[in-house]
Write a protein that binds this DNA or RNA. Structure first.
Length: 495
RNA sequence: GGCCCCUUGGUCAAGAGGUUAAGACAUCGCCCUUUCACGGCGGCGACACGAGUUCGAUUCUCGUAGGGGUCACCA
């Protein structure tokens, strides 16, 4: 193969779903791996579905993911324009040529007529193909109808005998009986081509060598081949991908309310993690390594690794991978990526303090799976939550409410009088000494303290880390609050 | 319904006519530990079913079952 050219050809719906993105990724990678060209083409031939600004979703996603195209809208190559609605005349010309070659014909059937041949109460059994009524009308009648300005479509003339075989790189050879093929519409009555036709014409005109698409196109591919043959064009390499599923029965889709790429980003998934994960949904690399940057994929992607059975989108594994990506970030990278989430959790007063911000970031980084978890997890720093004193009890830490009260009463004067440096490490050492002096286990000091400071059963960071962030004054306040609550609880029990 | 496709643990998946059938997520247990998380170690867990080919099939063939797709002037 001389020069590999692939294309991503979305129809602009204003929504980039995961399956689309994966197809796009694969197209892109095939181009890069082969040092070829990646083309972006917008398939907007459906006027009824036109949505203003919908193309932006495509452009934005490509920009965010770093999937760059070599030719396409705004990056004109030799095959433009790259927006199908601007190529109208081209399709008409080719459709007419196909009529001349005897592989297509004009059809003047009305919508009503088509309805009627479908059989009023269909659905019972087989859907019916077009009855080919207009195949037989005379040249004169065609000319007359055209002259009269009758609306028409151009249909593909399918062979009635024999079989058509095509080769798919993932599914192998597939053969169908020609008699099952419908005389599909190529040119609609509004003069625009159907997807099936525009696709073939453009893929040829743009020199596309590898076509990646969902396997829902498997059954229409023979029609494509017949079209290529009718024109005498080279047939591209087909790579049909199985769908990405929501569960065993349903595809991931907008209709099911499933997350789009952008939804995931907004929920705090990292672009790199999403890309990495979806690359692995339907493709498996040569070794056991699972982490790949886009750059690495551009070298390591192989067509052999593509699988033919559907894959369920497993949000749990994405979460894990996202967490891994987060842990692999430098503290600075994480601090920047989590900025909004940290600020949201800490509130204005604390978020004003860069020292606090970066300390909290450090605490939270190894514990974060998705960024949106952050605010809830650090909210206690902003304000001590209401809590039940039962959380002071912890069997393994060997504490209960009584011991906790004792500890906190030791801790209050300790914190007030502590003269060392107010940092976690120093505080930790001092607290261990305090415990020893009081005949307590470390945990009997540290657990009650951590609990009083956080008001939560679990918190990011331990007692002394929280002390450092909260500062002495707030630490004292929260210890006092703990004492107050524990005394009240004890009094309540005595009654 | 016709036609086409798919089927390895709960999930993603490697694999090949002879393997103790990889690895990852999830899950469970243990260790580490100032909670949690991270990390370390270990456990549970799969070739849809039935024939055939073969000395031997999870792997090849054919059926069966289950699932998916498609049958538009939508892509």
């Amino acid at each position: 193969m001389s020069q590999v050219r692939t294309r991503f050809a979305p129809s602009p719906t204003g929504y980039m779903h995961i399956g689309n993105l994966r197809t796009c990724l694969y197209e892109y990678l095939i181009a890069r791996v082969n040092k070829g060209t990646f083309v972006l083409r917008i398939e907007d031939t459906d006027q009824e579905r036109f949505v203003e600004g919908a193309m932006d979703a495509v452009f934005n996603t490509l920009k965010m993911t770093g999937i760059g195209y070599d030719e396409g809208p705004g990056k004109e190559g030799d095959c433009g324009p790259y927006i199908q609605s601007q190529r109208r005349d081209i399709y008409k010309k080719y459709a007419e040529e196909l009529v001349r070659r005897g592989h297509a014909y004009y059809c003047f059937c009305t919508k009503e007529r088509l309805e009627s041949i479908k059989g009023g109460d269909e659905n019972l059994g087989a859907a019916l193909n077009y009855d080919r009524h207009c195949r037989t009308i005379s040249q004169e009648e065609v000319a007359k109808n055209l002259a009269e300005g009758k609306p028409y479509v151009i249909r593909q003339l399918m062979p009635t005998e024999g079989t058509t075989t095509f080769t798919d790189l993932v599914y192998g050879d597939i053969t169908v009986d020609n008699k099952t093929l419908d005389d599909q519409v190529l040119l609609k009555s509004d003069g625009l081509p159907t997807y099936n036709f525009a696709n073939v014409v453009d893929d040829h005109l743009m020199g596309i060598t590898h076509v990646v698409r969902g396997n829902e196109y498997l059954s229409s591919t023979p029609k494509y081949n017949l079209l290529y043959q009718a024109f005498g064009w080279d047939i591209p390499v087909y790579i049909h991908c199985p769908p990405i599923m929501k569960d065993a029965h349903q595809k991931l889709s907008k209709r099911n309310g499933d997350a789009s790429f952008l939804d995931l980003v907004n929920k705090g998934y990292l672009v790199e993690a999403i890309l990495n994960y979806i690359a692995l949904l339907g493709w498996s690399p040569a070794g056991n390594e699972e982490f790949f940057t886009l750059k690495e994929l551009e070298e390591k992607f192989t067509l052999e690794g593509l699988s033919k059975s559907p894959a369920i989108f497993d949000i749990e594994k994405l979460k894990w991978m996202n967490g891994e990506y987060i842990r692999r970030m430098s503290p600075e990278e994480f601090r920047a990526a989590a900025d909004n989430w940290l600020r949201a959790g800490l509130g204005d007063a604390l978020a004003d303090n860069e020292a606090v911000l970066s300390k909290v970031a450090a605490l939270v980084q190894p514990r974060t799976v998705i960024l949106s978890d952050i605010p809830e997890r650090i909210g206690f720093l902003k304000e001590l939550p209401q809590y039940d004193t039962a959380i002071y009890c912890h069997k393994k830490m060997k504490t209960d409410e009584a011991i906790s009260l004792t500890s906190l009463k030791l801790l209050a004067p300790f914190a007030a009088g502590y003269s060392g440096e107010w940092v976690s490490g120093e505080l930790y050492t001092a607290l261990c000494e305090l415990a020893a002096a009081g005949g307590l286990k470390n945990s009997q000091i540290l657990w009650p303290l951590r609990t009083a400071l956080s008001g939560m059963e679990v918190s990011p960071g331990g007692a002394t880390e929280l002390m450092e962030i909260l500062g002495r004054a707030e630490t004292l306040k929260r210890i006092d609050k703990g004492i107050e609550l524990l005394e009240a609880a004890a009094a309540g029990r005595e009654e």
